[in-house]
Design a protein around this nucleic acid. Structure first.
Lengths: 201, 201, 201, 201
DNA sequence: AATGAATGAGGGTTCATTCAT
DNA sequence: TATGAATGAACCCTCATTCAT
């Protein structure tokens, strides 16, 4: 919470209470629910409570909305992960923290729209991909640092890049089968994902 | 090859040399390349060498093409997996065989369009989802049987369902970063995926 | 008439009785009446008796319709001028024939849409301008040849290019003030235009 | 200059240094460059350095801007022509002076936007057309008076109205092919136009 | 089976204009 | 006087689908 307020204050992300902020939130939800292509700008406008033409005061086109959603999702997630890492002590705890953060992001608990980074990535133009990728690189570096530490500690022995890539797929795909209101909690899910990487947990 | 020829002979899948078969192939490729929504019926028709109206002599609508692609992808993959399993001896070898088969499917080496089962699953109507799911259940049962055997052998200790779900995501996401003409071979990739599940490989 | 029938037979211009031909005619009239920008594709479709989407079976976009109109206007006018020249004996008669032809074209008696060549020229993309210009060059060469002959005969003493350029403006602007149902006939108008160039007519 | 300063002092035209005056200037240039329909109110605002909403403090709507541009163009041109006429002695000199003035106006050397009187005339509502026409009648009367004098002197023998109408077209169309930085000077162009009317110049 | 013209709903986007601040 | 977010109608164009041939 505090971290988001700080990002808003810095101007890094859009104030979620502003018109543009609400627009991004609604768009994120709709894009996640129905997919980018199946979501019309009229859908978004209706959700926000404005008319479709008004959207283009805030964004030059529909793709820019998706790009904005992704940017903020990465920025917020990065901030959340930094905060979580600060409170973890061992590499293993740090890894669990990251997994938990990413799962929270994927399932819409923090920045809505994080799952779009995988599912709708190809909808972005090369320019916008590069734009988001720059932010995502920072995010991914946090992962790689922690994975390196975990590897240093002898808890995993595979290539860190490879582990991360497998993990991205495994976690993002939970969006398709895991439900927050099901039998398993998100924390339990995170624990299991950790066990996938570190067998003697 | 033999297995596919047999499936064709049985009438289980469409003869790839028939008009309908070529249509499915082209559609699979285009759907994989550009996504279902971004692929127009005219794109497919042009690729096949017919006019757009003619497509509807073979399929009642666009979604049915996607459904057809998915059905055949599952059927072919199931057959390939069965053939591969028959030649593997230990549970671990069997698991590697399955991983290899699925990776081959995902990367278009066997049935083009397998990756769509994850990426475009939501484009299917509930009825069509149920239809494909029935075939997919057979496919998934092969996985669960092998995973159970591997677990029985003490090589993994997590819940088989959970392992499979993580694996589905991890493998299908390789579509986004692994390339057949890169440094790593598909066999090496399969080996690494196996190591993710069974640490002392 | 015969000349147009011939152009249709050659495939040089679109059959005015075909769907595309009617579309071009209606578009030409609407573009002339209201201007290109103020004419919507729905206006054109309504006039033709089809729906707006159907237009794009015949033309890739709205500009292509304008381009088509211009192309056919030039082609028809060129043919008409050639036919008229064949029947004129002296250079002066030839010049009068050209003036008459162009006035007929401008006022919609032959190829509807000729006036657009001046009034809506800038609406064409550079590519389409080049396309039409190639046809227009042929048309203009007829003028220059006749003007050269008239000059040779000592009837005018100004630069032929310059005369033609002034004349283009003078004649095309008649669209704004001359009306076929007014006091002056088109033939009289042509006579007067000739007198502007050749004083002792 | 003096004449313009005087018109400003009289309140006949807008002070070009005022906000409204700059707005008219920018609009005139943009309308000339891109056409009325293709120029957006935002284009004009951006050029002036204000926001689009602010324009409507000066003009009730977009058409009123065009109308204002035309009004001022006629008024300024009329003043310039009067001044030029005062310095010409013979009818022929007077005619040359008028031609020169009009060409200067058309090519943006005096009142930017004069060419719009022809090219964008139809964009004006009947009311606004009548409004501008009243001013234009004064302007045209200057032409007719001079043409009558030239005719009186036996230098032309065609109907004055007709001559003027042909000339309007011929001169306004120079906008499409004559360029100030080309081989021919504007004075030479005026001379040639004069020769078109009076052959033994 | 195939054609290809036509459909018609809906897509993203534009833009003159309004109005509370 | 200026702002700028919002309007809402209209724009060009797309596209799955139909159907007479």
């Amino acid at each position: 919470m505090t971290s988001i307020a700080q990002l808003v204050a810095e101007g890094t992300i859009t104030d979620p209470d502003s018109a543009k902020g609400k627009l991004l939130q609604c768009a994120a939800r709709l894009f996640s629910d129905k997919g980018f292509d199946r979501t019309t700008v009229r859908d978004i406008a209706r959700e926000v409570g404005i008319l479709s033409g008004s959207i283009f005061h805030h964004f030059p086109n529909k793709e820019a909305i998706l790009c904005g959603v992704m940017r903020e999702a990465v920025l917020v997630s990065t901030a959340k992960m930094r905060a979580a890492l600060a409170q973890a002590e061992t590499p293993q705890q740090q890894l669990l923290a990251l997994i938990t953060c990413e799962l929270e992001a994927i399932h819409g608990l923090s920045a809505e729209g994080f799952a779009l980074l995988v599912s709708e990535w190809r909808r972005l133009s090369p320019e916008n991909q590069a734009d988001v990728l720059a932010l995502r690189d920072i995010y991914e570096q946090l992962w790689l640092d922690v994975l390196a530490a975990v590897r240093e500690a002898g808890l995993i022995d595979m290539d860190c890049f490879l582990v991360r890539r497998f993990l991205v797929g495994a976690l993002s795909n939970t969006y398709n089968w895991f439900h927050l209101d099901g039998d398993m909690t998100l924390q339990q899910l995170a624990q299991q994902a950790l066990r996938l990487l570190i067998h003697r947990v």
